[in-house]
């Protein structure tokens, strides 16, 4: 008993102040990419050629955060002259085309659907379906339940049954073998329902693009309301998306 109390005092309160205050992330974190438009096209082409995800649009001089795995190759090659990955983790969008960006993202709050806020603003119950990713997105969704993020304090929970849920959070590139289970889960949720795509696999196929076993984009099989990019998205990215879109 004494041991339990001692530990309790040592641990103290660890919950972060987000969204009131932004917690600091370490300097090497690669968040929202900012593009310098006035760079020579040679550099852009070199970046596009080296990009393992082919996420750079040479003509528009934009980067597709839906494909990007935030490896930072383009930043290193251009020595920051073309792309800089900032420490801004607030990068989610309500439309897939907004993910193709030069760093100027539309405000997520303004694009969220007002009836969602009304319906789910005080209580949002989500069913998570893991569909063939690498388990990193799942892990960084799971940590939202830990004391540091404490998702439940906002009235948002992950629930065990689709029947209890207001929507699904999908991770992974939806393999052929998982597609039926995903669609069945989706059907089991009562209307109105939301669909959230987490991670570059889910949004575009990500690292597995080109495999015949996967679906390149969840939006090709379900109507997606919220896109959370990253490989995996930082837990604060997830938190920002959920709070801004539904609160």
């Amino acid at each position: 008993m004494l041991n339990t109390l001692k530990n309790r005092f040592e641990q103290g309160c660890r919950t972060c102040g987000y969204p009131k205050e932004k917690p600091a992330v370490f300097a090497r974190y690669r968040g929202k990419p900012i593009i310098q438009k006035d760079v020579s096209s040679d550099i852009v082409e070199a970046c596009a050629k080296a990009c393992p995800q082919d996420a750079i649009d040479i003509d528009l001089k934009k980067i597709d955060m839906g494909r990007c795995v935030f490896c930072g190759t383009c930043e290193r090659i251009s020595k920051g002259a073309f792309v800089i990955f900032t420490d801004d983790f607030e990068i989610s969008t309500s439309k897939k085309e907004h993910l193709l960006t030069d760093g100027d993202l539309p405000s997520l709050a303004e694009h969220s659907k007002q009836h969602f806020k009304k319906l789910f603003g005080r209580s949002l119950q989500l069913r998570q379906v893991s569909a063939a990713g690498c388990n990193a997105c799942e892990a960084d969704l799971n940590v939202l339940a830990t004391p540091f993020f404490d998702l439940a304090r906002f009235g948002i929970n992950f629930v065990a049954s689709p029947r209890h849920a207001d929507g699904i959070v999908v991770t992974g590139p939806v393999s052929r073998n998982m597609k039926t289970a995903l669609l069945t889960t989706y059907e089991a949720i009562a209307e109105p329902k939301v669909v959230i795509a987490v991670g570059s696999c889910t949004i575009t196929g990500g690292p597995f693009t080109g495999s015949p076993e996967i679906t390149e984009g969840l939006d090709t099989i379900l109507p997606v309301d919220l896109f959370i990019p990253g490989c995996p998205p930082h837990p604060l990215t997830n938190l920002h998306a959920l709070l801004t879109f539904f609160k």
Binding site: S130, A131, A132, G133, G172, P173, S175, R176, N177, M178, A181, F208, G210, S211, P212, E213, I214
Partner: peptide, 9 residues
Amino acid sequence: YQHRAIENL
């Protein structure tokens, strides 16, 4: 269920 054919990729 998670099969993505990685070895072939």
